[in-house]
Write a protein that binds this DNA or RNA. Sequence first.
DNA 1: ACCTAATTATTAGGTTCCTAACTATTGTCA
DNA 2: TGACAATAGTTAGGAACCTAATAATTAGGT
Lengths: 182, 182
Amino acid sequence: MREPVTLLKSLPKYEVFLEDSKRFPELDASACYVFLQLLRTGDDLLAMDELILSSLGTRHGRFVLLMLLHKHGPGEMTPAELAEKTGVTRATISGLLDGLAKDGLVERRPDPQDRRITRLFLTEAGDQLLERVRPTYCEWFTSVIAPLTEDERKQLVFILQKLQQRLAELGARLPDSMHTAA
Amino acid sequence: MREPVTLLKSLPKYEVFLEDSKRFPELDASACYVFLQLLRTGDDLLAMDELILSSLGTRHGRFVLLMLLHKHGPGEMTPAELAEKTGVTRATISGLLDGLAKDGLVERRPDPQDRRITRLFLTEAGDQLLERVRPTYCEWFTSVIAPLTEDERKQLVFILQKLQQRLAELGARLPDSMHTAA
DNA sequence: ACCTAATTATTAGGTTCCTAACTATTGTCA
DNA sequence: TGACAATAGTTAGGAACCTAATAATTAGGT
């Protein structure tokens, strides 16, 4: 019932904006096109990523959490630190941890010093899942990038970093809301 | 309470995979790095996009639907066609239309010929929202792409298309599930 | 010491996405 | 014609995200 994500379509979701570039002469049509391609490729990549991870019995968000928990030692991470490293809110982390704990992949234990803090531990099962999933996942994304030449990779990374810097600039001076701390 | 998305962080969400490239010699470290940068830039772009659209009083999904409804004539689109064009399921379209209808931006009317079909109409308010939001939005994404030279834009689009083709190849021969029709 | 601030984690409620199941209608074809 | 399949749209239930409000604990200032 579901087509392979957006993969096989021309530029369906975003094509409408290309219309606009004709009606608004002040718009840079090339910018528009580049933007849409970028948005679309990002979408597709994320979608495939979810698909792969799902077929391996996990999900993107959970997998990233397990990786982080594995990288840092047992009991070293707290929900707040996970939120900080992943860039999602603590509320989201709470939900993800609920799922991981329910599946027996992660354990929550109170910190003896500071009773506000919860310390997180990867279980044996969590570690095994990681060992099982990681090779296939790494193989997959390597094969996605494989067609790019060394030059193309350099170009791409350079351009992406330029864009990230630009996004950071634009993000820094947003209307308002958020920005509790500098 | 919420930091400006992931924008100001080094490579937080994905850095963990870079560790792996050291432990798994068969992994292409450069592929890994490129992949992470791409995933991250896509994430950031989408996040900022949501942020902009939110500050303008709408959301990405809804906005795209309104654009599509505007592009095609009144009553020309059906929920199924929107699903097809946007790449999300019909169920998702139902939910989005519920929201848009509740806000009085869109109207659903039964097709007189085929009583299974619902025909969609942009209301006056829907059209006004579009007129209000579109210029700012277009201005925004133009300014995101602005720092890229003409050469860089060409390179980027070329590389992205290469990747999309690759993703389509890889997606075509997935384990199983889905693929009801060729 | 005590009252207020800040911090940790969670819960509640909303959004956008999914799959799967369902209803209503239309098309097919034996 | 009459059963069966296909199609349109929705509903139900779940996941990952959000904001805002909450409870518990710690830290700071006077």
